[in-house]
Amino acid sequence: MDGARAGPHSGLMETFESLVRAEFRPKNTYLNTATSGLLPARTVTALREATELRAEGRPLDPLFENVEHARAAFARLAGVPVTRVAAGPSVAAQTGLIAAALPAGAEVLTAEDEFTSVVNPFHVRGDLKVRAVPLERLAESVRPGTALVAVSAAQSADGRIADLPALREAARTHGARTYVDFSQAAGWLPVDGDDHDYTVATTFKWLLGPHGAAFLVVPEDFGELTPLLAGWVAAERPWDSCYGPVAELAHSARRFDVSPGLFTYTGVYSSLTLLEELGVAAVHEHDLALADRFRRGLAGLGHEPLPAPGSAIVSVPGLGGRQPELSRAGIEVSNRAGNLRASFHLYNTAADVDRLLDVLAG
């Protein structure tokens, strides 16, 4: 990392940096966490041990236990009881549960150009009224008759952060439910699952886990959700519910679980332990400092990123076409709608930012 800064927090900084150095050794300048995060060394080890367990024919009990460890870790991150957290394979699948629960003709309010997994399940229903408005007008656009507002906490395309407090108040005023996707935020931006009716996050981006897992936080009373995908794992006593209809669904949000990818959740649990050790507040400070450094550097080069104050994601109009050139130079970023999207996370350094700026200037 950059080396410990002097001052009252220098000890904390040294601990942060030493933990990160022990877990990550990227071979390139990786500034693409908004697409997928890097796996910590401890997670790679956990995945290797899980595959060896399978290969050797040993009991899989530890892997099933890791699903529950991962669920509990995410519950702590979201600040909710573990009984409110369901485990599934993707955001789209979790959105599908929400969409299926709405009555015909219900109005769903979304942001324009919202990420597809957050909105498409509502469109394919065919009998819902889906209305999209600019992100900045989302709260003021909630109206009587709006059943649900679905939005990402941080926009995938450009990193803009939704005004969630304003949205929460508007939804309460008009009796609407809220569904917030933290996939581009959980891990660097604090999550408060109690602030929203439904909260979802995939784990392979800022939470540093493998692909194939997404957690859904539901209300204590489960809202209007029906466990449409319930199999044996959704039972109160799964191993007694392997044949025939499930006689008793889980008394917790586990009733909404889909049979879990055991390797994936083993990796997720390991990754979440690192984030807990570092603390989201420290990651938040680190990530934003790098994003702001990039924004200042862009100004010096005559480029203006899309407005996204307080975000770890920086999107620059007109530079997306340079993504292949940057990749050849060993710098990984994204091209999103013609914009160059750089995303900064705990394993990145000031040197990474400066290398990107140097190549852009070059």
Results as ranks from 00 to 15, higher is better:
41 A>R: 12
359 V>E: 14
228 L>S: 13
194 D>R: 13
231 G>M: 02
137 R>I: 04
204 F>S: 13
304 E>M: 12
257 D>Y: 10
51 T>V: 14
172 R>W: 09
259 S>F: 04
128 L>T: 02
132 A>E: 14
248 E>D: 08
58 R>G: 04
200 V>W: 01
322 R>D: 09
315 S>K: 10
139 A>S: 12
46 A>M: 08
201 A>Y: 06
64 F>A: 02
257 D>P: 02
131 R>M: 13
294 F>V: 00
339 N>P: 04
221 D>R: 07
296 R>C: 06
305 P>V: 11
324 P>L: 07
165 P>W: 04
284 H>V: 03
23 E>V: 07
182 F>S: 08
48 R>P: 00
338 G>Q: 06
309 P>L: 03
132 A>V: 11
255 R>H: 08
52 E>H: 14
268 V>S: 07
229 L>D: 09
13 M>A: 14
360 L>R: 01
229 L>T: 10
75 A>S: 10
125 R>T: 05
203 T>G: 02
242 C>V: 15
111 A>W: 01
62 P>V: 11
224 E>S: 14
160 R>Y: 03
196 H>E: 05
194 D>E: 14
174 H>T: 07
198 Y>C: 06
53 L>A: 02
348 N>K: 08
36 S>R: 13
346 L>D: 00
282 A>M: 09
52 E>F: 14
294 F>Q: 01
27 K>M: 10
158 D>T: 13
171 A>C: 15
165 P>H: 04
354 D>V: 01
220 E>P: 03
90 S>H: 12
42 R>W: 06
360 L>N: 02
185 A>Y: 02
128 L>Y: 01
171 A>F: 05
213 A>L: 06
276 E>W: 09
224 E>P: 10
221 D>V: 09
126 G>T: 04
131 R>Q: 12
23 E>F: 07
157 A>N: 09
214 A>Q: 07
202 T>S: 15
57 G>R: 08
271 S>N: 12
278 L>D: 03
208 L>Q: 08
236 E>G: 00
9 H>G: 08
245 P>E: 11
43 T>E: 10
224 E>H: 10
72 A>Y: 07
362 G>Q: 15
57 G>K: 06
25 R>W: 05
338 G>D: 11
187 G>R: 00
349 T>V: 08
46 A>F: 05
340 L>Y: 12
164 L>R: 01
135 L>Y: 01
205 K>P: 01
22 A>R: 11
100 A>P: 03
249 L>W: 08
353 V>W: 03
220 E>L: 05
78 A>S: 11
186 A>P: 03
296 R>I: 12
295 R>D: 09
293 R>N: 07
324 P>T: 09
87 A>V: 15
173 T>N: 07
25 R>A: 14
172 R>V: 09
162 A>M: 06
206 W>R: 03
